[in-house]
Amino acid sequence: MLEQILVLLPQVLFDGFILGFIYAMIALGYTMVYGVLELINFAHSEIFMIGAVAGVEVFRYLAPLIPNGYLLLAVAVVVGAAVAGLAAILVERLAYRPLRRRGTTNRLVPLVTAIGVSFFLQDLVRLIEGLWHNEFFLRMRTMPDLEGSFTLFGGAIFIQTKSVIVIVVSVLMLLGLTYLVNRTKLGMAIRAVAQDLSTASLMGINPDQIISRTFLIGGALGGVAGVLFALIYTTINPYVGFLPGIKAFTAAVLGGIGNIPGAMLGGLVLGQLENFFGTYLPILTAGNFGAEYKDVVAFLILVFILLFRPQGLLGQMVKEKV
C-alpha cells in the first residue's frame, strides 16, 4: 500500500496544484469583498460560474474564426473576466448597495441577500442558456493545439498542456493582483477602505467607488478562474459554482479571511489536501470510503480551522469591540 501511495505521490501533488490555483483565484474574490464589507459574498461562486459559461460561449462562437487555441483562450479569458467582473458590479449595485444605504445593523440581512443573489443567478444563467441554446449542460469545445500532453521523471507525472496553461495564467494573475494591491493608488485605497471605511472616506476616498472596484477585481479574477475551470473540466452547468465556491471560501478562511496572501496560500493548501484525500481515501480504507468523501474533508477542515485557529494561517486576531 505504501508503495502504491509513493508511486502516485508526484502526480497527486501536481494535480493538487492545479486545483489549488483555481481555488486561490476564487478565494481572492471572497477575501477582498470580506475585507471591505465584512460580508460573505455567497454570490461569488455564481460569478465564477458566469465566467465559466462565458468561456464556453466564446469557444463555441469564436473557434471557427480563431483557429489558434492559445489566442482563443486569451480572448476567452478576457471576455470571461469582463463578463464576470461586470456581473459582480451589478450584484453590488442592485442588491448590496441598497442595503448599505439603509444602514442596517442586522448582520443577517446582507447575508440572506447574498444567498438570494446566489440562487437567483444560478437560475438566471439557466434561463438565459435555455432560451439561447435550449440546453444548460454545456460542453467546452476542445481545441486540438491545447490538447497535448507530456510526461516528466520517466512517466511519474503525466502533464496536460492545459494544466501548464492554468498554472501560468493563474500565477500571472496572482502576481498582477499582488502588484495592484500593494503598489498602486487603487490598491492603497482598497486597503484603506478595508482597514476603516469611515476614516478612509474622510481621506478623500469614495468608498462606494472603491467597493465597486473591489467587486470588479474580485469578480474578474473569479471569471478567469471560471474559464480555466471550464478548460480543464470541460462540462459546465449553472450549478457548477457551488462546490468550488464553498471550497474557495474555506480556502479564504484557511489563509485568514481578509488577507490576500492568505487566500492564495489557503487555496493551494486546500487544493493539495482535497486532492490528497480524494486519491488516497479509497486506497487507505480499501475502497470502503471513496473519493465522494473529499467534499466532506473540505467541510471538516473548515470547521476545524474555525474552531482552533479562527484567524487562519496568516491572519491576525481581531478583538471584537463593544
Binding site: L121, D123, L131
Partner: peptide, 28 residues
Amino acid sequence: WIPSQVDPAKYERLVFGLILILMMIYRP
C-alpha cells in the same frame, strides 16, 4: 416558441432567490 428546456416549474431557485433579495431590500 419558448424552448422546451425553459420550464418555469424548474426555476424555483430564481423565484426563491428573488423573494429573498426583494424582501431584504424592501421589507426585511
